[in-house]
Design a protein around this nucleic acid. Structure first.
Length: 310
DNA sequence: AACAGATACAACCGCCTACTT
DNA sequence: AAAGTAGGCGGTTGTATCTGT
């Protein structure tokens, strides 16, 4: 049984607010305050609206100090920097922008700012090894700790995305039928889509061998992307877990090639994972190299951020 | 002028958390 | 301590408006 609804949906008005409703709510809140109880407020104010709806209307639209539209360049930069540091914590980001609401910032990001970044008009702060992660996250595990990680359940959600593929790496059946509702896209056609500003390089889990997909041993350039939203026409930022199973060559530094040649050709997993950071950190392309019986992450390439299928 | 598709943004939904009983 | 509840939040949807054909 689900949770009880906050109001009687059949008897409350929904949809856009009329000027009269706005005036009623504004007058009531200005003269009485919210009373610390939004659920009871609409009845007291004489509105046929859900309390949550009233709260949202007040906070996002009617509050006297609200600014609408016309984000400045300075605000763009603040949003980009904060997003780079904390991801899609819109409320926290909006709190640094006087007069802006979380909804406003979120909409602005989704409809305009993201495109500006992709066009290279605004740069996004890139995490480096010296940067700290958002305070709500524990640091990403080191390469070593990931390799020996047995249980994903004592780590943060951000880490979970990194650990899950290891557990499921050998098991294509770990994915549900819905997840196998797959769009394939060609890496070679998307490799140049991202702007230089959008995260590429190697994550904190450490750099090592890079996998060369352009060799004959590489059996496919086709990556499989599972959708979390059936029927969606594009991969959303929050789509999670995609996979491809490849046989490919691991490039090694010249001097090591001869002695390690027998290890150079190996099976690897490549995965698109959701780190929970939101764009552009989603869709890191994780490469996993077989180590003994398990797969261990070798490097993470963020260059696939925000790719779209064709 | 009419239509289709894209865009912007307001509003809703449902989950999570903190607080109260 | 457990259960119930409201507030807060991020993700998603609905719809009005804009733009291109």
């Amino acid at each position: 049984m689900g949770r009880a609804p906050c109001c009687d949906k059949a008897n409350v008005k929904r949809g856009p607010w009329s000027p009269e409703e706005d005036a009623t709510l504004k007058a009531y809140v200005e003269s009485h305050g919210t009373g610390g109880n939004w659920i009871a407020l609409p009845k007291k104010a004489g509105l046929r609206r859900c309390g949550k709806s009233c709260r949202l209307r007040w906070l996002n639209y009617l509050r006297p100090d609200i600014k609408h539209g016309g984000f400045t360049e300075e605000e763009d930069n603040i949003i980009c920097n904060l997003y780079g540091q904390m991801g899609s914590r819109w409320s926290a980001i909006a709190s640094k922008l006087p007069g802006r609401t979380d909804n406003d910032v979120k909409n602005y990001w989704n409809t305009k700012l993201k495109k500006k970044i992709m066009a290279g008009k605004v740069s996004l702060k890139t995490l480096t090894e010296n940067d700290t992660l958002p305070s709500t996250s524990t640091p990403l595990p080191t390469n070593q700790s990931l390799k020996t990680q047995n249980s994903p359940f004592n780590v943060s959600p951000n880490q979970l995305a990194l650990v899950l593929p290891i557990l499921e790496a050998n098991d294509n059946n770990a994915f549900t039928d819905n997840q196998k509702n797959i769009i394939s896209f060609d890496q070679t056609k998307h490799h140049g889509l991202y702007s230089p500003q959008v995260m590429h390089g190697v994550s904190q889990i450490g750099a090592s061998s890079r996998i060369n997909n352009n060799t004959n041993e590489s059996n496919s350039n086709s990556h499989m992307v599972s959708l979390s939203q059936e029927g969606s026409s594009s991969i959303s930022d929050s789509s999670s877990i995609a996979m491809n199973y490849n046989k490919c060559v691991v490039s090694q530094p010249q001097q090591q090639q001869q002695e390690q040649q027998q290890h150079c050709i190996d099976e690897s997993m490549e995965m698109l994972v959701d780190f929970g950071f939101g764009f552009p950190y989603d869709f890191a392309n994780c490469h996993y190299e077989r180590v003994g019986e398990t797969f261990a992450p070798e490097w993470v390439d963020f260059s696939y951020a925000d790719i779209k299928p064709h």
